[in-house]
Structure formats: C-alpha cells, structure tokens
C-alpha cells in the first residue's frame, strides 16, 4: 500500500504535469500582459477598466467551456454564436409577452438544451459530421430569430433583468461571478466525474469506448447539450447587458470560443482539454482586445494581432507536447 502511494506520488508526472505547467504558463502570460498594459497605460489598472475587462471576457469564457466539452469528443460546435443571438431574442420575446422572469430564464435555457439535443440527433442518428449540422443551425437560428423579430430588435423593459449585468457582488462584476458559477460544476463534471472520462474516451476512440460499455450516443448528447446550454446562458447574460434581444448579436463568437479553447490547450483532434485552459484563453483574448483599445491600436490591427497570437500560442503548446513525449 505504501509502495503504491509512493509510486503514484513520485512518477505520476508526465501528463498532468504538462497540463498544469501549461496552465501556469498561460496564467503567466495573462499576468505578464496585465503588467505590461499597467506600465504602458494609465487607465488599465482602474476599477472601471478591470470590471469592463472581466465583463468582456466572461461571456467568451462560458462559451469556451461549453465548446471544450464538444471538442474533447473530437467534435465542433459552430452554432454557439448564433445560439447566443437567438436566445437573446427568445428571452426578450418571453419577457415582452409578460412571462415571469424566472420562467423566461428556464424556458430560454430549455431552448439551449433542445438545440444541443438536435445537434446530437443529427450526428448520432443521421450520421452528419458535427461541422455540418452545427453550421446548418448557425445559419438557420439567425434566420428564425430574424423572423421572430421581423428583422428588428426587441427591447427589454424588465429592470431587474437588465440591472443584473451592471451589478457587482463583493466588488466583482456579477458577470464574472457567472463564470465561476459555470466553471466549478464544469470542472467537477470534466475532471472528477465518470462522464468527463467518457468524453475523453469517446474523443480518443469511440469504438473502444463503446466496447468498454460506454454509452457513446448519450455522451455525445451530453456534450452538445452542455455546449448549447452554455450558449443559451450567455444569451441571457448578453440580453441583460445590452437590454435588447437581437438575432444578429454575437456574430463570430463561435470562433472566439474555439480560439479560447485552443489557446487553452484543447486539441481539435479530441481527447485533450481542460476547464481552466479555455477560461485563461478567453481572458487572454479579452485582455488583448482591451489593451489594444486602451493603446488606441487600429481595430483592423487588433484582428491581425489576435490571429498571430493564436498561431504563436498553439505552436508553443505543440512544441511542449512533442518534447514531453
């Protein structure tokens, strides 16, 4: 027994070690960016700006966590941006129809569950590639949202709802608290529960997982439902923040979410990923945008810089993995 604990303590290194090390270097990069921006600008370390930064990063971070579940199964969810826009319309519409707030929230989240279940249905039952089925909903959900609103926006008059995104709790923006509300159960789910292990197993070799008694279909349903529900949750937060429901909002956020996930060490080939990685990735992206704004960098350049950074960070991650072999 003692030999066993010694062994597991001493040589348990390679894989987890790399993951933690990578997490630390990402955290280091984030802190380094913050330090740099603090030195380069006067306005970075102001309470206002930090709150702003945390709010900006929060929504991408939640999307990225959901996206990561899907990517670990070797899939992809291109629809999350459209789901955010669509669900912002749903909640605004429900509130405008006089539905009580809490029911509107539950119904909106239920739409997220439905959309995710539809994706999984397309993949599992119809045999469509994840890229295709989620690309299809990306387009059609925006269309349905525009139909509902007749191409315009629905404003939200419920003050309790719209005040939420501006509120602070213990000096930290409530939107950032929502990241924690999502991240802790997500961590437990992915790293401590058997369902998390099944996501990795399905992403690595779904046939082997199946022959080992893993319910592969259920696992895929779970991943896509979680991703879409996270997106619906972000739809609520966005609606609260901008006070309207508009189907064209959150354009391109799916790519932000995928980029955050990949920066956070998730492998697009599946079976590699964590919860803390995408969170750091999302806040690194948010910091770059925020810093570029403060430094008055041309927004066209911002895009170029973001693209270049994605390449650099993921390249270094690849190098690290290869040398760890």
């Amino acid at each position: 027994m003692s030999a066993e604990t010694v062994e597991s303590g001493a040589s348990a290194a390679p894989r987890k070690g790399v993951s933690i090390l990578f997490g630390l270097t990402l955290l280091g990069l984030l802190l380094f960016l913050w330090l740099l921006l603090g030195l380069a600008t006067n306005s970075f370390w102001t309470p206002n700006n930090i709150s702003n930064l945390l709010r900006q990063g929060a929504m991408t971070a939640i999307l990225a966590v959901g996206q990561t579940f899907v990517i670990i199964t070797a899939g992809i969810d291109l629809s999350v941006g459209a789901v955010v826009g669509f669900t912002s319309v749903i909640v605004a519409w429900l509130l405008a129809a006089g539905v009580p707030l809490w029911i509107a929230i539950i119904l909106t989240l239920a739409f997220g569950v439905l959309i995710g279940a539809f994706h999984a249905f397309g993949i599992v039952r119809m045999g469509l590639p994840p890229f295709i089925i989620t690309l299809a909903t990306l387009t059609s959900l925006r269309g349905i949202g525009l139909l509902i609103t007749n191409g315009s926006t629905i404003s939200i008059t419920n003050e309790a709802f719209t005040n939420f995104s501006r509120a602070d709790f213990l000096g930290v923006p409530s939107l950032f608290w929502m990241v924690i509300v999502v991240a802790i159960p997500a961590y437990v789910f992915l790293h401590l529960s058997r369902f998390g292990r099944y996501l990795f197993a399905v992403g690595s070799n779904s046939e082997a997982a199946r022959l080992s008694g893993v319910n592969v279909h259920r696992t895929i349903y779970l991943a896509y439902i979680l991703s879409s529900t996270c997106a619906a949750f972000v739809g609520l937060l966005l609606a609260s923040r901008i006070g309207i429901g508009n189907a064209t909002q959150a354009e391109g956020w799916e790519l932000q979410a995928i980029a955050s996930s990949v920066i956070g060490g998730t492998s697009l080939f599946g079976a590699v990923g964590s919860v803390h990685g995408p969170l750091l990735g999302a806040f690194i992206l948010a910091t770059i945008n925020n810093g570029a704004n403060l430094l008055n960098v041309n927004s066209f350049w911002q895009r170029i810089i973001t693209g270049a950074l994605i390449i650099v960070i993921v390249y270094f991650d690849q190098l690290r993995r290869r040398s760890a072999r």
Binding site: S193, R197, A201, E207, A208, S212, G213
Partner: peptide, 24 residues
C-alpha cells in the same frame, strides 16, 4: 488499435474505462 484502446489517453483511464460506474 481500432477497438481495444484509447491510444492517446493514459493507461489508468483505459484500464478503468469499463468500471467507472463502480468507482463513482
């Protein structure tokens, strides 16, 4: 390679894959 193992996952996870419901 095709049916037996999740090659890019750790040995421990592979061994435990059929019994995670029991270990939970």
């Amino acid at each position: 390679r095709d049916q037996g193992l999740c090659l890019n996952l750790p040995i421990g996870l592979n061994i435990n894959l059929p019994v995670f419901n029991r270990l939970s």
